[in-house]
Amino acid sequence: MMARYLPLLVVLVAWEVAARCRVIDAAFVSSPSEVLRSMALWYGSGRILPQLAATLGEIAVGASLSFLVGVALGLLIGWYRPVSDTASPVLFFLDAVPVVAIAPMAVLVIGIGPWIAVLLVFLLTVLPITFSVAAGVRTVPAALLRMGIHFGASDRQLFRTIVLPAIAPYIFGALRGNIGRALAGALVGEWLGSHRGLGSMMFDAAGVFEVRSVYVGALSVVIISLLASAAITAAEHRLCRWRPA
């Protein structure tokens, strides 16, 4: 089990040793111990908390919006064939847009502030959820639906007991894939359109070669994404307990 983490450990040790022995310039690449010390300092003094709160808040708002819109759109597209046929080409075109490239224009229209990041989080995460939910709806077993209808189930009951359980794994899959996209959206949004948040902290620091802040930010982002992934997995286990293994 430990052997799996050996290469990672080797890389970290080599990095530390190289920095200590001045093989590499510690001013530019820092070192693991120094990154940890900066982490302890930033978190201990609470200096990073406003940035962290800003980033997490933007992600929460953007991701909630994209969840609502994505699930609704996905249900529409998955359920009604003509809607899917009409909307799919447009959605694929929009999916091909590199969202990051819109950011500068969005700043011009919306202005500086947290909303740029919220917008980018939303735009980056909404289509994956839409596509997943639509794909999930298409896998709903038709026989079960027929049975439900024959037994007099209402639309509400059909949705709650047959459709929702079928699409749940697809939703969780999309959510897991969206973690990285949401973080990327928040970082870029803050870099180009805000003075607050981890993104603006990191990109500003890199501009003046203040490497330590960049590492603290990057490590925080990694920890956020690992925690989010663990939370989604836990939620999935809890909500899908009934599923036979």
Partner: peptide, 26 residues
């Protein structure tokens, strides 16, 4: 694969956009 995959998974877990400023500095 068993030896190197965890390393690659670890790197992939980092949102790469967060590394762009770092790479530009380096």
């Amino acid at each position: 694969g068993a030896l190197f995959e965890p390393l690659l998974i670890a790197v992939n877990a980092v949102p790469l956009i967060a590394l762009v400023p770092l790479l530009v500095v380096l």
